[in-house]
Amino acid sequence: MSEDLLVLQHIRKSFGSDDVLKGIDFSVRRGEFVTLLGSSGCGKTTTIRIIAGLEEPDEGRVLLDGKDITKLPPNARSVNTVFQNYALFPNMNVEDNIAYALRLRKVRKPERLKKASEMLELVQLAGFEKRMPDELSGGQRQRIAIARSLVAEPQVLLLDEPLGALDLKLRRQMQLELKRLQKKLGTTFIYITHDQEEAINMSDRIAVMNNGVFEQIGTPDEIYYHPRTSYVANFVGNANIYRGNDGVFAVRTEKVKIGDEPGCVIPAVVKEKSFAGGQLRILVALEDGQELTVSRFGINSELVPGQKTKVGWSAEDAVPVIDDGV
């Protein structure tokens, strides 16, 4: 038994002339919480559909627990999916939805209803057995969908932007809850999101996807502090990409020095000042036209748009990255 539970080997997939996955390699360890992070259309949903068996790759193999499952239908894989819009069966009540997988396995009715109740308790919705899906709120449906997928005790649970339809506050709460659930059950989770905060909060490892390839796979720390490419630096850390004579660097907005602060050597002009999320953001333009964002906590700065100033940073704050044009 190897440590890698799920292995993707050089998966390719195209729809017509659209190459969605361009030969990806990826492995997930047992009990790991892995997030596929990327903007829409980057291929993350196709990736998990291939893992689930809802899509067949043009090339490559999918291995689960060492066995090749590439050609297996979805029902023959120990993998379950929490769909983006939950896909609860509207013709069944909550307990029948949750017990669905057990019904297919011919588990006797009293037993499967008992199991459904246990699952409801696990997702903190005890007493909701007889409700119909259309009587539930978005967050409740979400939990039912998770319970329905977990009841089958899959080796891998795939979650396709499960919190995408919820409001911010509920999303934060559900993030914690999902993480708690995953720790408790020890199930391997593969989670899809386009929200870098969500990815950083929940994941053991993050795989940043762009244009059908993985830009970088690593722990949240690695991704955030040591981005491999300019895309990752920008997408995950909202970092500035500085293209200088001696290479391309990612510099985090809070690490950029400005004005009277020591180390400012590059002439710049203030273009905009804005306040968002407890931070003051100053957009400056360098002489060669590059724009950089500087952020500071608080709302005060004497700088005004149009004013000439200087910017700079310490050498250790400039992370060299591979430039992929972002």
Partner: peptide, 27 residues
């Protein structure tokens, strides 16, 4: 029909016939 429901049925362990009988036909 919301075909995601059929995918969900397949995903949860139903073969094509089971998915049809338990989801498509009632829907």
């Amino acid at each position: 029909m919301d075909w995601k429901l059929v995918e969900a049925a397949r995903d949860l362990g139903g073969n094509a016939a089971q998915a049809f009988l338990t989801v498509t036909l009632p829907m």
